[in-house]
Amino acid sequence: MILEIDDLHAGYGRIPILNGVSFGVGEGEAVGILGHNGMGKTTLLRALVGQLPLTGGHLRFAGKEIGRDPSHRRARAGIGYVPQGRAIFPALSVYENLRMGYIPRGEESEEGTINDIRAIFPRLDKLLDRAGGALSGGEQQLLSLARALCGKPKLLLLDEPTEGIQPSIIEEIIEILRQLHRFQNLAIIVVEQSLDFIAQLSERVLLLQKGTITREVSPKQLANASLLDDLAGVGE
């Protein structure tokens, strides 16, 4: 297991949002998390990257307890994060956004890593000198993903990557993630409301309700919208 989550509790101030989340993600495994608005999907990812302190439970990454580690240490350990709303640096150029994502580990140079990422994202390669803030929403999402991949993560967390994105770029994102998942053994946790996206990318899907994982379904079951509506209120 690359990630082990055991009875995780977290919340905002005194308001508990996650009430004992437990699941694991294997190396190179892609897990989708479905849930209605307000069920704790984004909170779960924020707790995993250290943006939200844990109030209970254990979090192990690559065999090491990381529950008390600050965000930057988790990122350096190999957890990449593509947050909701892209979160690029609008005043920096595309190239500098990519440079920001590079984490020196002595394996590969910054130049080499960015060149690899440029090859994966040909759309961004043409926009390297453009300010991040001047990109379209879809291009910003690609940049956010590319920046996360510059850190050579072992586990990539994606928070609603298709939100407000044109279909052609969604297809591009799915294809890129599939390739990385298949050929680079990248583990993925994706939080999404788009059933189609989750079904195409995930190997198993977890339903999150009221801050706990209530059920696991296979991607094939996502075709049954009425079942999902009953289970998690996300079928429509």
């Binding site: 943006q51 930057h72 988790r74 990122a75 947050p83 979160a87 640096f89 920001m100 984490i103 850190g151």
Partner: peptide
Amino acid sequence: ENEKRVEFIG
């Protein structure tokens, strides 16, 4: 630009 963003990229 954004402190949190910088932290989750390492």
